[in-house]
Amino acid sequence: MKGYHLGELEELILLTVGILDKEAYGVAVLEEIKNQTGRKVNISAIHTVLNRLEEKGFLKSYMGGATEERGGRRKRLFTLSATGRSAIEEVKNLRNKLFEQIPPLALDFSHGY
């Protein structure tokens, strides 16, 4: 199968951008990840990944939304592209497919080894 290769962080960020829906930019993504997963990711890592995902075509971006906190600078807002959406679904489906193939026994820890 020709897959969408996504790294772990890439997948996480792609999902977060999907969640934030038109409000996704560097700091927002950072906060969302922190709130949802408790993980502290470096802002520069997030930027790098966002840019890389955009290059791969999973994300689209536009400039907008200047705020005072940013010293009047605009945010680069990211949204999922069609490819991005299908990539998430693909990944999710793949996971599910694989998960469902795990024999029930393997998940049953009551036997105790």
Binding site: G26, V27, I43, H47, G71, R73, R74
Partner: peptide
């Protein structure tokens, strides 16, 4: 703009 803005916000 993007980077500096984020850095300021943080």
């Amino acid at each position: 703009e993007q980077i500096q803005g984020d850095a300021y916000e943080l």
